[in-house]
Simulated scan of single mutants.
Amino acid sequence: MKTLYETSLKESLAIQKRVIGALLMREIITRYGRNNLGFLWLFVEPLMLTLLIVFLWKFLRADRISSLNIVAFILTGYPMAMMWRNASNRAIGAISANVSLLYHRNVRVLDTIISRTLLEVAGATIAQIAIMAVLIAIRWVDVPNDIFYMLLAWLLMALFAFGLGLIICSIAFKFDAFGKIWSTLSFILLPLSGAFFFVSSLPIQAQKYVLWIPMIHGTEMFRHGYFGSSVITMENPWYLLLCDLVLLFVGLAMVAGFSKGVEAR
Rank of each mutant, 00 (worst) to 15 (best):
F55W: 03
F55M: 11
W57D: 08
W57F: 12
W57N: 08
W57I: 10
F59W: 15
F59I: 14
F59N: 02
F59P: 00
A62R: 00
A62I: 12
D63C: 02
D63Y: 14
I65P: 04
I65V: 14
I70D: 00
V71G: 01
F73D: 02
T76A: 03
M80T: 12
A81Q: 12
M82L: 14
M82G: 09
M82Y: 09
M83V: 13
N86V: 12
N86H: 14
N86L: 08
N86P: 00
N89P: 10
A91Q: 08
S96F: 02
A97R: 15
S100N: 05
S100Q: 13
L101Y: 09
H104D: 03
R108S: 11
L110F: 06
L110S: 07
L110Y: 01
L110E: 04
D111P: 09
D111F: 09
T112L: 03
I114K: 08
S115H: 13
S115W: 10
T117A: 02
L119K: 15
L119H: 04
L119G: 02
E120M: 06
V121P: 07
V121Y: 03
G123Y: 02
T125L: 03
I126C: 05
I126K: 10
A127I: 07
Q128W: 03
I129V: 14
I129E: 07
I131W: 06
I131S: 02
M132P: 01
I136R: 10
A137W: 10
A137S: 12
R139F: 08
V141R: 05
V141C: 07
P144K: 13
N145Q: 10
D146N: 15
D146W: 10
D146F: 11
Y149M: 08
L151E: 01
L151W: 00
A153N: 07
A153R: 03
L155T: 14
M157L: 12
F160L: 08
A161S: 09
G163P: 10
C169S: 12
C169N: 09
S170Q: 12
S170F: 03
F173N: 11
F175C: 04
A177H: 14
F178T: 15
G179C: 13
W182S: 13
